[in-house]
Amino acid sequence: MIEIKGLVKKYGSTVAVDNISFSVERGELFGLLGPNGAGKTTTISVLSTLLPATEGAAVVAGCDVAKDADGVRRRIGVVPQEIALYEDLGARDNLNFWGRLYGLSGKDLQRRTEEMLEAVELGEHARQKVSSFSGGMKRRLNLAAGLMHGPEVLFLDEPTVGIDAQARGKILALIRRLNEDGLTVLYTTHYLEEAEQLCDRIGVIDRGKMVALGDKDDLIRQIGDEDTISFLLPPERLDELLTLSTKWDLVGDVEHRRGCARLRVRDTARVLPEIQMWLAGQQLPLDHLEVHRPNLETLYLNLTGRALRE
């Protein structure tokens, strides 16, 4: 459904997108991860025909973005990172406008508008001016505006920025539902937990380059399947722990930083109870005992050497 080959976008001497290639299958929910300024929005801008590519080729829904921009525009929906709505109009007026822009009219427009208002739970606020909406309501309406014409491909550019957990949950649930109904989604975010929840495949983009691409679980497995166990431990007890840990299959050495011991283990189910028993026997506190499973954050850290939100 989306095919990108060697895409480059330069602004003068600045390379915003540097030779990236990937594809998204029909009905797939693909996550494009990266920190602010990584090139995610630029990529979506090129795919949605807003920006011309400097080099490379991209095909969306069977249409070449450079040669058949009109074809692409009729088949895509774009939900920008900003609240791209008319705040001086009501929710219904906004949706009516975006629907009309794509040729909807009469009863079709009315029906679709009401459907979308219900889908984003804004039916009761249909006449209310958008300027009076909460951040979450605006985000939901922003999403609905991109869906009015029933696009084949939806580009979601950080659609949950700046809203609370509850509002985010509603938006993610709606996206999941849309995807289950067959909508192809390209989702950019710098919230890794969102990508973990939603996406089948991901691409990690950093400073314009694609640094990882593939199935989410496969990528995480590539960085290792060991867990990290950490707990409070006075420095003088470290030797005892080292002695004890020789019977465990550790990955790397035991680390001790800021009063915490940290071990990377493959067999968490066996090691964790033993550590708990040892701590209890030594009358050491158990309440700081934590187990970290590898995730996208770890993956990103491994790939780029820094945390995603730095």
Binding site: L50, R73, P80, A84, L85, L101, G103
Partner: peptide, 14 residues
């Protein structure tokens, strides 16, 4: 500035 123009230009208008 509020990006509605960008959004419009991703639609079927030139």
């Amino acid at each position: 500035e509020n990006r509605t123009l960008a959004r419009i230009l991703t639609g079927p208008v030139n």
